[in-house]
Amino acid sequence: MSEAIYYVTRNRIEQSYVDNSSGFFVAIPEQAIPVPIGNILNKDTLLANLAKACDFPSWFGHNWDATWDCLTDSDIEYLALDLTLTNDINSEDFNVFKNLVEDAFKEFGKPQLWIIMASDDFTQSPIR
């Protein structure tokens, strides 16, 4: 598992830990910025909610390059992407975002991302 991205379920949050597959338990940091996602996750909804949650500057262009710039030029270290109410996830857009986070973490050591899923049953995932 990546050091940049962790998956957790609502149940695990209530138990206050995430298993990172290395035998250690990692709590979601209190400083993690919550990024709520509604019913649909695609590029537009993800970037709009991320910009709002992280208070991106007015020049933010709602594209992947601007997202990279805002995340890597900021003090943002931790994000918590809440997908518990999401019923439709555009996998291409979601994967681009996860790759962006992974690359930023490799280069700058931040941010780390916690993806909060509704259930432990990942076969019921809304990712298409």
Rank of each mutant, 00 (worst) to 15 (best):
114 W>R: 00
83 L>P: 09
87 N>V: 10
69 D>C: 06
106 K>S: 14
34 P>W: 00
112 Q>L: 04
97 F>V: 06
54 C>Q: 09
87 N>D: 14
23 G>F: 13
105 F>S: 05
128 R>L: 01
93 D>F: 05
76 I>A: 12
45 T>P: 08
51 A>I: 09
47 L>A: 09
112 Q>R: 15
52 K>G: 05
13 I>K: 02
123 T>E: 13
127 I>E: 05
123 T>F: 11
116 I>S: 00
44 D>M: 12
80 A>R: 00
76 I>V: 15
61 G>R: 12
105 F>V: 02
92 E>K: 04
59 W>F: 14
107 E>F: 06
96 V>N: 06
124 Q>L: 14
44 D>N: 15
62 H>K: 15
40 I>R: 15
45 T>G: 07
42 N>K: 14
11 N>G: 03
3 E>W: 03
83 L>V: 03
36 P>G: 07
16 S>L: 10
46 L>C: 08
57 P>E: 09
52 K>A: 13
55 D>C: 11
53 A>G: 10
21 S>K: 10
98 K>I: 06
36 P>V: 05
90 N>M: 04
18 V>H: 03
107 E>K: 13
127 I>W: 02
67 T>H: 06
18 V>I: 15
81 L>S: 11
14 E>V: 03
57 P>K: 09
82 D>A: 01
7 Y>M: 08
103 D>H: 04
54 C>F: 11
75 D>G: 15
125 S>I: 05
59 W>N: 11
116 I>D: 00
111 P>L: 08
67 T>S: 13
78 Y>P: 00
119 S>Q: 07
114 W>Q: 00
39 N>R: 15
24 F>D: 09
103 D>G: 07
63 N>E: 13
90 N>Y: 06
14 E>G: 08
56 F>M: 05
11 N>Q: 12
128 R>F: 00
54 C>M: 09
2 S>F: 02
